[in-house]
Amino acid sequence: MKAILMKTSGEPDVLTLTEISQPTINSPTTILIKLKAAGINPIDTKLRQRGTFYPEEMPAVLGCDGAGIVEAIGSEVTRFQPGDEVYFCAGGLGKIGTGNYAEYAVVEEHRVALKPTTLSFPEAAAAPLVLITAWEALYDRARLTPGQTVLIHGGAGGVGHVAIQLAKLKGAKVCTTVGSTDKARLVRQFGADEPILYKKTDFVESVLSWTDGQGVDVAFDTVGGQTFFDTCGAVKVYGDIVTILQPDSSIGNLKVARTRNLRLGLELMLTPALMGLKEGQTHQMSILEQCATFIDEGKLTLHLSQTFPLEETVTAHKALEAGSNTGKIALTIV
């Protein structure tokens, strides 16, 4: 089968289109999926630049997100039949025999959900990682409740635009940082109550003004760096701040967070995969099932800004790394 192979770490051109062996069902609980599309996420570019989590198993096929059609099932599979349209987040971290920049994938049944019927395959492939990340950050880590106020950084981005919608579905009020007036208009379409043009105004001051000096109940940091430490001053006393990046102590400290008695949450949706936690993987599958319902009911949308054919994966990585993208990017697989 055709696949994009990474033989060494480096710039995007280390990704090459190659013929490799097609995977086969390797346990009674796995399914063979004919991939129609694969999502591209920042984790893909980081693994390409720095190396995968399993360097001893190189070369690797990247891509955590996929969508396609079930072609065959293991003898103990009960939830799917050949012909089912599915989407999932699994593989792509460097383990041999995994990855979705390819024509086929073999995935454990408990990691797969039926694709939202109203989404195309590229849209569905772009969705899983960001849906799970935003859900776990807001619902599991921050324990968001109706009526709370939320600050979401990067609201026009992949995780951010989904986080806005999930926060609104929970009955929260949302402010979000954006880099342009065009993005401000876009995030309003997703339900944001207060876009903040962070290049023109101090976002902490804007948040405090919006909340009558109290700060938000929950802040969701998708940017990291100094932004994480600055955000602590925009959260109310005894509030929550969740980040998807590792705080860098060489940049700042947690004095403000400690003074305000904030509850800190670290969100890494890859934990169940990296630690082999089946319960966590099953929980993530259930998130995809619930989100599929929201999507098909018109309560949640996925913004896909660009698609590239599998053969143009290098260009797709360059587009993601160029920054200023809105929503998601996906690969189409014929």
Rank of each mutant, 00 (worst) to 15 (best):
K2C: 01
G10P: 07
E11G: 12
V14M: 06
L17Y: 07
I20H: 01
S27N: 06
S27C: 11
K34R: 15
L35S: 08
A37H: 15
A38N: 12
G39Y: 11
P42D: 14
L47H: 14
Q49F: 05
T52E: 14
Y54Q: 06
M58Q: 07
P59F: 00
E76K: 12
T78F: 02
R79V: 01
G92S: 11
L93G: 02
E109L: 05
E109Q: 12
H110S: 09
V112F: 12
V112P: 12
P122V: 09
A125N: 02
P128V: 07
P128A: 09
V130N: 11
L131F: 08
I132R: 15
A137M: 04
V150Q: 01
I152F: 00
G154L: 02
G155Q: 05
A167T: 01
K183F: 03
P195R: 03
K199Q: 15
T201A: 08
D202M: 09
F203C: 00
S206A: 15
S206P: 01
S209A: 14
T211Y: 13
D212T: 04
Q214M: 14
G224A: 10
F228P: 06
F229G: 04
A234T: 01
K236I: 04
K236C: 10
K236G: 04
I241H: 02
Q246C: 00
V256Y: 00
R258V: 05
R260C: 05
R263V: 13
E267D: 13
G280I: 02
S286R: 10
E289I: 13
F294P: 00
F294D: 12
E297K: 14
L302C: 03
H303C: 01
S305A: 11
T307I: 08
E312M: 08
E312Y: 02
A316D: 11
A322I: 08
T332S: 12
T332W: 03
